[in-house]
Design a protein around this nucleic acid. Structure first.
Length: 283
DNA sequence: ACGAGCTCCTGCTTGC
DNA sequence: TGCAAGCAGGAGCTCG
């Protein structure tokens, strides 16, 4: 599932492909991925034709293509969105939803099996789309304030994993990196945020940055063909996961069997020995 | 204002 | 063998 490292791999892969390119034509093959463009699929295609790309940008899991006229094409990969570059004559990948023919003869394709993600036009959004403004900075942003975020995390009245997944507290972290970060920081996912010491709050955010930086360096995490870069290749971080998807396998630190627990209709993975739930506030 | 739960979507896997 | 249920989950939305 694309989280910050995977989205950044896609963004950096797109940069040399689209920057400076002009859109010759757009085909919308399924209406759902443009559902956020209220004027409809036909308008989406027509209004983008003839425009030119500048550098693609990112905050958290949001990606946007700045356009030369100051607008932007906002993109979210959701669960399964991919961008691929191909020749127009090449057979379409299964679940291809939108294609952009570029002025250098290439074709940019948005492929998305589950269609949780999508594209929309963001007027005036080249610097920062309005739709992204409410999302917190991610840990890789030069203005990200780790200390202030740690304080806000502790001020919440929830559990630490929920807080890590709250994109309005810190963006870019999804289910995989939340589990990995908590394991690295040795904190139980259900630990109430109000019981965390400041050092623990800092540690879990630092762990998130560390884990995501390592994943980014390896081209992102993949379990299957649902996440690939613009050339269709998978990342290598999957082999380095310590808890996610490793139910009943030994904890790499202590050998205790990893536990999978239902959480918000999804799963949390943790080591019941390294990550103990504390009843009391820590200092 | 904030926290929690629901919903959207497809396709692979699992079980009867 | 065939069918259906289970499962994967980001984020907008609603409700309390």
């Amino acid at each position: 599932m694309p989280e910050l490292p995977e989205v950044e791999v896609v963004r950096s892969g797109l940069e040399p492909i689209v920057t400076g390119r002009r859109i010759e034509s757009v085909q919308v093959l399924h209406p759902r991925p443009v559902r956020r463009h209220l004027a409809g699929p036909e308008d989406f295609a027509l209004t983008l034709t003839g425009r030119s790309f500048e550098r693609p940008r990112r905050r958290g899991k949001y990606l946007w293509f700045a356009l030369a006229d100051g607008d932007a094409i906002l993109a979210h990969l959701g669960m399964s969105g991919q961008f691929r570059l191909d020749q127009p004559s090449a057979e379409l990948q299964r679940n291809t939803r939108i294609t952009f023919d570029l002025d250098d003869g290439g074709q940019l394709r948005f492929v998305d099996q589950r269609m949780f993600g999508g594209l929309s036009l963001s007027p005036g959004g080249a610097e920062l789309p309005d739709e992204v403004a409410h999302i917190a900075l991610d840990p890789f942003d030069e203005h990200f304030d780790l200390g202030a975020t740690a304080d806000r995390l502790r001020a919440k009245r929830t559990t630490v994993k929920r807080a890590l997944l709250d994109q309005q507290l810190v963006s870019g972290i999804g289910n995989i990196y939340a589990d990995e970060s908590l394991w690295l920081a040795r904190i139980h996912p259900e630990q109430p945020t109000a019981t965390l010491a400041r050092g623990e709050s800092l540690a879990v955010l630092e762990a998130a940055r560390t884990v995501m930086a390592e994943a980014l360096a390896q081209g992102g995490t993949s379990f299957d063909a649902l996440y690939v870069n613009v050339n269709g290749q998978s990342g290598y971080f999957g082999r380095d996961l310590n808890v996610y998807g490793r139910e009943d396998l030994p904890c790499p630190r202590c050998g205790t069997a990893i536990v999978r627990q239902q959480f918000m209709n999804r799963s949390s993975h943790f080591c019941p020995s390294c990550q103990r739930l504390r009843k009391r506030r820590s200092r």
